[in-house]
């Protein structure tokens, strides 16, 4: 079995399809992005730069990175564990488990924020415990993290499961048969095979975690400089009619996403041979 290699478009049909795709991408994705950039640089480079180094903007960036730095590794470890048990073993209730895994995709971000208030708010299930121990979850960093974790939970697992399903287990079983320990198998056989899918899942998860708005908006408390993440800070600036600041901050998120995604493409291209060699042994 071999996949078809991409080729230069030759037929009229190919050009028509490319034109259609180009128009659609332009209308739906490129124009909104260009618009964000145009608004950000409306008054030139200097106001743009001063907008993104304001202390409130910097603290929002720091908070956003902190939230992502906690939420993404958690979801990555979970994603690997979930993919391992779902693709390597058969057990009762696997279908149910997969449906629960997909649930966060179907939950409105508004609800993803609200459920944490129901649990940890001053009138929530755990209110008395939290009050007694003086732990703050909602309107503080932990609330932002768990809301983000819930929204981005399926990304890594969903990237890994189809790949690991396809790859099968023969290499791993071979390693075990030859006496390798479980962790050895994981680090020497499984991980090299899934590292690109893992990277991609982690990147998506990171991008989504940093851009999340609806859910964190419910649990943030909107304290400037303390609990406003970058997307929330953007909303604040926009509400202050500071469109240069708002869109300037938005370019950071868009830029970050583009850089990581282009980086991923480059990595694949650079290490593509190694990857192929890996797969062929």
């Amino acid at each position: 079995m071999r996949a078809r290699a991409p080729e230069r478009p030759k037929t009229p049909a190919a050009f028509l399809l490319m034109a259609l795709a180009a128009v659609w991408m332009a209308l739906v994705i490129v124009l909104p992005l260009v618009n964000v950039l145009a608004e950000a640089f409306k008054q030139g480079v200097q106001p743009y730069l001063s907008a993104i180094v304001q202390p409130d903007a910097l603290s929002a960036i720091r908070l956003t990175l902190t939230v992502a730095a906690i939420a993404v590794p958690l979801n990555a470890v979970f994603g690997i564990a979930a993919a391992w048990c779902v693709t390597r073993f058969d057990f009762a209730g696997k279908g149910l488990l997969l449906s629960v895994l997909d649930l966060p995709f179907t939950i409105s971000p508004v609800i993803s924020g609200m459920v944490w208030v129901l649990l940890f708010g001053a009138h929530g299930w755990f209110a008395s415990v939290l009050e007694a121990s003086n732990i703050k979850i909602i309107y503080a960093l932990p609330g932002l993290v768990i809301a983000t974790v819930l929204v981005t939970l399926p990304f890594v697992a969903r990237e890994l499961i189809p790949l690991m399903q396809d790859q099968g287990t023969d290499e791993e079983i071979a390693a075990v048969t030859l006496g390798a320990s479980g962790w050895d198998v994981f680090f020497r056989v499984t991980l090299p095979n899934i590292k690109w899918a893992l990277t991609y899942g982690v990147l998506l998860c990171t991008a989504r975690a940093m851009g999340e708005f609806g859910a964190v908006s419910v649990v943030s408390g909107h304290i400037r400089g303390l609990t406003n993440t970058l997307p929330l800070h953007i909303e604040v600036l926009y509400n202050e009619y500071d469109s240069v600041g708002a869109f300037g901050a938005a370019t950071l998120l868009a830029g970050l996403a583009l850089v990581t995604l282009v980086l991923k493409t480059l990595l694949e291209w650079r290490f593509g041979d190694e990857l192929a060699a890996n797969r062929r042994h």
């Binding site: 795709a21 971000p109 940093m210 926009y238 996403a257 493409t265």
Partner: peptide, 26 residues
């Protein structure tokens, strides 16, 4: 994206994910 080879394909491919990353409010 999968069938044709054209300049700037990597960028277009990356752009597809933009809606994931851009805050929805933006």
């Amino acid at each position: 994206l999968t069938r044709y080879e054209f300049p700037g394909k990597g960028l277009v491919d990356a752009l597809v994910d933009l809606p994931f990353a851009l805050p929805t409010a933006v």
